[in-house]
Each structure stands twice: as structure tokens, then as C-alpha cells.
Simulated scan of single mutants.
Amino acid sequence: MKDSNLTGAIAALMDEYKKAVNELIVVIEPISQHLLTKTIEPESSNTDCISIQTILTHVAASMFSYAVYIENSIGLKTVRPERLQFDHITPYISRLREALKYNEDFFTRYPNITMEEFDQSKKINTRWGQQYDVEQMLEHAVVHILRHRRQIKNALGKMKN
């Protein structure tokens, strides 16, 4: 994001977001269609973690969702983009980049958004029960990518054994 006009916490977090997405892309780029759709956690009660395909569908959708939470917290009435599932890795890479750009574009339009909010009544309420301010939501978004990158990397390592 070095080419944007963002500064401070937003620029730092967006740089880390971009780095996390790029690191995820490095891990997933060589994945074949067979490995993409192969069941990795058959016992999982979380349908987002059954295969690399379901993980990537979840990750890309979440990237849009976090931005939409932030948009709606400032009064925009944004609808989450459709959750898309693909049978090949290339469209996932495109979707991850599209989601990152969506976030970058939002913060470019709203560079003075309040990042830290100490008033609990002004926090963003998530559907999973957490309350975040904008900074915490963006931090969560970055770590979410890192956690699932690790999960995918570990799954790929087990498939090789």
C-alpha cells in the first residue's frame, strides 16, 4: 500500500493486511484442484474448515464482511458481497486481491475514520458476539488471514505425508 495516501494506523494495518494476503497467496498458488477440494477435517463441526476450498471461501467472504461491518458502523448501508466458491485456485487468488482492494478503497475514501473507540455503545457488534472498534476489526482481519494461512499450510504438510 505504499502508493496510497493513507497514513498512521490505517496505513500500517493495511500494509500488514496486504502482506498477510500475499503470504497466503504464496501458500495457495501451487494447490491443485484435487488438493483444493480434498477433505482435510472430516470431523470438523465447522463447515468453513472441511477443505482448503471451504477455508478460502470463508476467508475471502470474511475480508469483505469486516469492511462491511466498518462501513455500516459509520452509517453506510452496505450489503455484503455474495459468498463465492470456486473449483480452482486462480479465482480464489483474484477474489482475495479484490477483497483487499475493496478494503483499501474504503480507507482511501475515509482516511479520517475514528480508529479507536472507547465508548462501548459505539463499538461494532459482530454476529459472533464480539465488539470491536475500527482498529480492532482491522487487526482481527489481519490475524484471521494469518490463522487460516497456518491452517492451510499445516493441512498441505499432512497431505504430503
Results as ranks from 00 to 15, higher is better:
residue 129 G to W: 02
residue 79 V to I: 15
residue 81 P to Y: 05
residue 79 V to K: 15
residue 37 T to W: 10
residue 120 Q to F: 15
residue 107 F to V: 01
residue 43 E to K: 14
residue 59 V to M: 03
residue 130 Q to Y: 14
residue 7 T to K: 12
residue 73 S to N: 09
residue 146 L to P: 06
residue 59 V to T: 04
residue 51 S to C: 04
residue 133 D to Q: 05
residue 6 L to K: 05
residue 96 L to F: 08
residue 26 V to W: 09
residue 76 L to A: 08
residue 121 S to Q: 13
residue 56 L to V: 03
residue 93 I to E: 01
residue 24 L to W: 02
residue 77 K to D: 11
residue 94 S to W: 13
residue 70 I to K: 07
residue 43 E to L: 11
residue 44 S to G: 03
residue 57 T to I: 02
residue 160 K to Y: 10
residue 32 S to T: 10
residue 97 R to M: 10
residue 44 S to H: 01
residue 120 Q to W: 14
residue 62 S to D: 03
residue 11 A to W: 08
residue 25 I to V: 07
residue 134 V to Q: 04
residue 52 I to P: 15
residue 124 I to H: 11
residue 134 V to G: 00
residue 55 I to W: 01
residue 130 Q to P: 08
residue 40 I to L: 11
residue 57 T to D: 02
residue 72 N to F: 09
residue 68 V to E: 02
residue 31 I to L: 06
residue 138 L to R: 04
residue 145 I to G: 02
residue 17 Y to T: 01
residue 145 I to S: 03
residue 80 R to D: 08
residue 58 H to I: 01
residue 133 D to Y: 10
residue 160 K to R: 12
residue 151 Q to I: 00
residue 111 P to G: 03
residue 62 S to N: 10
residue 161 N to Q: 13
residue 21 V to H: 12
residue 1 M to Q: 07
residue 109 R to A: 14
residue 92 Y to M: 02
residue 148 H to F: 00
residue 153 K to D: 13
residue 136 Q to P: 06
residue 39 T to L: 13
residue 15 D to C: 03
residue 16 E to I: 03
residue 57 T to W: 05
residue 5 N to Q: 10
residue 4 S to C: 06
residue 155 A to Y: 11
residue 76 L to N: 13
residue 80 R to N: 14
residue 58 H to P: 07
residue 44 S to I: 00
residue 4 S to P: 08
residue 69 Y to E: 00
residue 2 K to P: 03
residue 76 L to V: 06
residue 151 Q to A: 02
residue 13 L to H: 05
residue 79 V to E: 15
residue 115 M to P: 11
residue 109 R to Q: 15
residue 16 E to M: 10
residue 58 H to G: 01
residue 55 I to Y: 01
residue 72 N to Q: 08
residue 46 N to G: 12
residue 115 M to L: 10
residue 114 T to K: 14
residue 73 S to L: 07
residue 26 V to L: 09
residue 66 Y to I: 00
residue 3 D to V: 12
residue 16 E to Y: 10
residue 112 N to E: 12
residue 66 Y to W: 12
residue 137 M to N: 09
residue 9 A to V: 12
residue 151 Q to E: 06
residue 71 E to A: 08
residue 29 E to P: 07
residue 104 E to C: 12
residue 136 Q to N: 05
residue 134 V to K: 04
residue 122 K to F: 04
residue 98 E to T: 07
residue 132 Y to V: 00
residue 155 A to C: 08
residue 156 L to E: 09
residue 94 S to G: 13
residue 156 L to I: 12
residue 88 H to I: 09
residue 66 Y to V: 03
residue 19 K to V: 05
residue 115 M to K: 06
residue 141 A to D: 03
residue 28 I to H: 08
residue 123 K to Q: 12
